[in-house]
Design a protein around this nucleic acid. Structure first.
Lengths: 236, 236
DNA sequence: ACGCAAAAATGCAGAGCCTGCAAAAATGCA
DNA sequence: TGCATTTTTGCAGGCTCTGCATTTTTGCGT
């Protein structure tokens, strides 16, 4: 819970595998039931029954009924952070983040079916969408840490020496960076969200990669009004 | 629910005033109780009792217990959109948005006490923070509409003629703008959030206006690595 | 001032959510 | 196989939330 990047190793005891299976079964059952009969009409009892466990067990896996609907791809943040750290050093922080996110999104395209069902559920349930965004925010803090580390200091993560506390020099460098890493992480996450939303209402009309590229071009050009679509000379 | 900017008129019948008072009393009671004994230990019964109404009445005002904790400043989005439309036409969209947000944040500084209590509550309750972000997202959609309008077309809002549907030409212009307005609205909201968070952990160390300015400078310079704080020559 | 219709508040029953606790089943290992 | 640990399960009980019928309050015409 305290040293930062060891949340999702591939531990493969029978115990661990079974827990993963149960968790996945609950998530999938929940999403399918939600698509079928609407989120509000899916009780914890029904989800548990469909997944073949008791009601009480459901709450051993999720803190609330709603949480099961926002737990698709919960480990994406983890992979993004690894990718940021592994990025070629000649890339700017924003470029490194962009490429890391792009790589993760390619992964997602391969689990398309579950993701599409999931998106359908969220679209019809604003309250769950809100929770989803909140989940992203948790990742955001960690991502800001990782970005700060890439820019300003040695690697407190992945080192044996002092995984929990940075050296005074590292602290100093982070302070000097100000809110930049935090802002970069937050804006990056926001960009992904907007790109996905924009693309999902134009399904098939454009490749997602193009939407993604356009989004980050806006960011790198300081969010200026796109030149190719000027406003008309005068309002009417 | 369909024509866009008429959410908060100052209707002043006795009925309306009493409803506003009851709503405000519930919100304030909830926040104070939460600061006093922790969010999780505040029941709807307690909030209702403190506000002098029945438990059942609470649910006539809020859809859920949690909602009462995220309803501080629910009409800010409305004012921001008006400010965006009223901004001098020589400002770029990003500048107009920046100034509109800055103006709103000055308003907030005057209700400081309740906001600080509220911030304290949210800091200790991630799940509520998530809901809060979700609430902001609802505003985001409307803000994107308003920005698109300012940039690309006449004013479908505030006109008598066709408040619900844009003309074909307006539609065309919006399509040409692509995801830019949406991205601008989302990034603007994110910037405010990051600025507030960054400032609130450095309370008193810096003026909020400075943090806010720095944040938007990052955005206008394409989120490049700040020049005044270069990374050291080589990692160690 | 009075009474009436609309709106709001209330009590209550009932379904669903969620938690602690202790007993029972499953698992990993010597 | 036998034992320690982990996981699942049932159950009691409190809290959240909704629909419905009833009572109280408000706005307004007379």
């Amino acid at each position: 819970m305290h040293s930062m990047l060891e949340g999702t190793p591939a531990e493969s005891g029978l115990r661990e595998r079974k827990k993963r299976a149960t968790r996945a079964a609950l998530v999938e059952a929940a999403v399918r039931l939600a698509v079928e009969r609407g989120v509000e009409n899916v009780t914890v009892d029904a989800i548990s029954a469909a997944a073949g466990v008791s009601t009480r067990t459901f709450f051993n896996y999720f803190d609330s009924r709603d949480e099961v609907f926002v737990m698709v791809g919960a480990d994406a943040g983890h992979r993004v952070r690894r990718a940021v750290l592994a990025a070629p050093p000649e890339l700017s922080p924003l470029e490194a983040l962009r490429d890391a996110l792009a790589a993760e999104l390619e992964e997602v395209e391969q689990q398309q079916e579950l993701w599409c069902l999931h998106a359908e559920v969220l679209r019809k349930a604003p309250q769950l969408l809100a929770r989803r965004i909140g989940a992203h925010m948790a990742d955001e803090l960690g991502l800001a840490e990782t970005l700060a580390e890439r820019m300003g200091a040695g690697s407190p993560l992945f080192t044996e020496e002092r995984p929990d506390f940075a050296s005074p020099e590292e602290e100093e460098r982070r302070r000097a960076l100000g809110l930049y890493p935090r802002l970069l992480a937050a804006v990056g996450g926001t960009a992904v969200r907007v790109a996905v939303e924009h693309w999902s209402v134009r399904q098939g009309e454009t490749a997602f990669a193009d939407v993604f590229r356009e989004t980050f071009e806006h960011l790198t050009t300081g969010l200026t009004l796109p030149q190719q679509y000027p406003v008309p000379a005068d309002g009417a």
